[in-house]
């Protein structure tokens, strides 16, 4: 049982027809008031489309997370094959110095707002390839800004799902519309 005072057990939530009755009885009936930004963020958080970009071992756990048993589709997380349709890039695995410019270009091709999940120790800090190594990048955050770090070598699919939940929390709190208006105003002046 949650200690949150706002917590309502699922059994106490009104069925939908009852809920509509309550809403209809309000003055101006049938209207739900909320912030535009909150509705947008709610929608955005429930449909994060990541780019299928696997580098190394973590990509296998990422595939497993998209596949049977873990099935991230149920949270609206559907992999896309092109950066133009993606909201989020999962850097799964170790990135070499040779691949770093390509990761950067993929990230630049993604439309705003965009997010980065760094999956596994290698993408986070170089991991087991930190010492005595001449070819691996010591953390993908040297190339692109990271929003969520998922630790593990490789992280379990559950860990990746937790990472996505953290990203959803972040998106829900984000003043993204406000920021966009401010940015547009700044660009005009």
């Amino acid at each position: 049982m949650s200690t949150d005072p706002k917590y309502v057990p699922r059994s106490q939530v009104l069925p939908l027809d009852k809920a509509l009755e309550v809403v209809d009885s309000l003055p101006g009936g049938g209207i739900i008031l909320t912030k535009v930004e909150e509705v947008l963020n709610w929608g955005r958080a429930a449909s994060i489309w990541p780019l299928t970009f696997g580098l190394a071992c973590c990509a296998i756990e990422m595939m497993q997370a998209f596949a049977t048993r873990f099935d991230m589709d149920r949270m609206g997380i559907i992999p896309r094959a092109t950066p133009r349709q993606a909201d989020c890039i999962i850097v799964a695995g170790r990135a070499t110095i040779k691949i770093a410019p390509i990761v950067r270009r993929l990230w630049e091709q993604m439309p705003e707002p965009k997010y980065v999940i760094s999956m596994g120790s290698c993408a986070t800090c170089g991991g087991p390839f930190y010492y005595d190594n001449y070819s691996i990048l010591k953390g993908i955050d040297q190339v692109i800004p990271v929003d969520v770090y998922v630790p593990g070598c490789p992280p379990r699919p559950e860990a990746l799902i937790e990472g996505f939940l953290k990203l959803q929390d972040k998106i829900k709190k984000e003043p993204f519309l406000r920021r966009r208006i401010t940015n547009a105003a700044a660009a005009q002046s």
Binding site: R94, T96, I99, Y131, N133
Partner: peptide, 11 residues
């Protein structure tokens, strides 16, 4: 090739 060269033999 070489996009995932992790210098394992050296390490």
């Amino acid at each position: 090739i070489g996009y995932l060269h992790s210098s394992v033999e050296r390490m």
